[in-house]
Design a protein around this nucleic acid. Structure first.
Lengths: 109, 109
DNA sequence: TGCAGCCATGTCATATATGACATATACTAA
DNA sequence: TTAGTATATGTCATATATGACATGGCTGCA
């Protein structure tokens, strides 16, 4: 179980341990993981809202299906950069993306 | 003159050409550049607010002075990732950072 | 039974970002 | 002047992220 999955469970209300530092997550690491999870979740929600498959989004991004899958899984090999580019490719504006980052639960569209 | 500097001038009100696509910036590229500029500006503002030199911040980030300088210059060799890590290292929360992304002008603290 | 579309996951060669270093400029104080 | 501090900028070896590919699971449909 890696940190990302760990954090995702918690974000969905599982309250593993004391929410934050179950495994040695520094405060700064948790902030980054939190952002990553929000972005990756929003990516999936929006991709589906657009009726696109991972393959279709990958084409827009000049990337590959496997990478899109990893993006949505908040894989540790995926940068925040790439997630931001993904959201932008789905029509997200800076203001949109700001809302995603600020939101506690990844709401729709 | 690269795209970043181009965009920064414009953000400060220079209105180079027709603001946006003076050089062939796609809409998606401008969104990303916009975010980068807001983050880099916020980084400088906050670093100074904390009374830190670039060297001091670099130490916190386990990076180097030159890289911090490039971060604040929105250099093309700097990722959004690194900028986000920089802001987090200065105490920025996801919500804080969201405000930075949404803001038109990089306000303080 | 296929078979096709969609997604997950692992591997790998290469592209890109990064820290470190050198060096330059600007400003201040002695 | 010289010295010290802060910042800017270019280069480079290496670390990391990326696209591509292979493969497997799952669902629905012929």
């Amino acid at each position: 179980m890696n940190k990302a999955k760990q954090k995702r469970l918690e974000a969905r209300g599982w309250r593993v341990g004391t929410t934050s530092d179950f495994l040695g997550l520094s405060e700064e690491e948790t902030a980054l993981v939190k952002m990553k999870l929000r972005l990756s979740h929003a990516l999936r929600v929006r991709r589906e809202a657009h009726g696109l498959s991972q393959v279709a989004l990958a084409k827009r991004l000049q990337s590959s299906q496997s990478r899109v899958a990893k993006m949505e899984a908040a894989d540790h090999t995926v940068s925040l950069d790439l997630l931001l580019r993904g959201l932008v490719a789905l029509g997200g504006t800076p203001r949109d993306i700001a809302r995603v980052l600020a939101r506690k639960s990844g709401v729709a569209a």
